[in-house]
Simulated scan of single mutants.
Amino acid sequence: MTDVDPYRPPGVGIRRPDGADEELALFGLPAIALATAIGSVFAGTVLIALNYTAQKRRGLGWVVALLFGPLLTTVALSALLIGSRILHIAPMTLLVGVWLAQPPVMTALAALLQGAAIKQRRRAGRRMAPNALAFVIAMVLLPVLALFAAPASAILAGVISRALTD
């Protein structure tokens, strides 16, 4: 018999595959604007949360993704519903206005929160996440937006409009 114990962990450190030790890429401001244009402020906040995760600030990333993102999305959708019900603005006009306002607002927010880290990463010549990945993430998040955020916004807007009209 041999003295080799097959259940003992190896004595040498196990290396991860090539490139796995690299830091995660950040999404730039154009990627956040693209995701916001496609998937509303919800997708933009998810990319901001992923940026925090890439910076090894996971706790802040979770707060942004699970609290700040749904809250901003609910506010944006509620503004649409309240604007059309109370202010009697044509729904399509209001929708186009809010849709056009979301990317610049989220880009400004991302620049405020993460602009310095993004600029530093670009100056150092480090890898940035591709805009195509931002597009895919936004497309994947659209059903989440439709299933969860839109109904919550409709309920909130209904409660607010009833309170304001009574």
Rank of each mutant, 00 (worst) to 15 (best):
M1H: 10
T2H: 11
D3Q: 08
R8S: 13
P9S: 08
P10Q: 12
V12L: 12
R15S: 15
R15N: 12
D21W: 00
A25E: 14
F27Q: 00
F27A: 01
G28C: 05
L29A: 10
A31H: 04
I32K: 01
A33L: 06
A37D: 00
I38P: 04
I38G: 06
G39A: 07
V41W: 01
F42T: 06
A43C: 04
A43T: 05
G44Q: 03
T45L: 13
V46W: 06
L47G: 00
I48H: 02
A49F: 01
N51T: 02
A54H: 02
R57C: 01
R58W: 11
L60R: 14
W62M: 14
V63L: 13
V64K: 07
A65E: 11
L67P: 06
L67W: 11
G69V: 02
L71A: 15
T73Y: 14
T73L: 13
T74C: 15
A76T: 08
A79N: 09
L81V: 12
L81R: 12
I82K: 03
S84V: 07
I86Q: 12
I86L: 15
I89K: 01
I89T: 10
L94D: 06
G97D: 05
A101D: 03
A101W: 00
Q102S: 12
Q102Y: 03
P104C: 06
V105T: 13
M106S: 04
M106F: 12
T107V: 12
T107D: 02
L109W: 05
A110E: 03
A111K: 06
L113T: 06
Q114H: 01
A117D: 12
N131P: 08
A132Q: 13
L133S: 12
A134N: 03
F135T: 13
I137N: 00
A146E: 10
A146I: 06
P151F: 05
S153E: 00
S153Y: 02
G158L: 05
V159S: 08
S161H: 07
D166K: 12
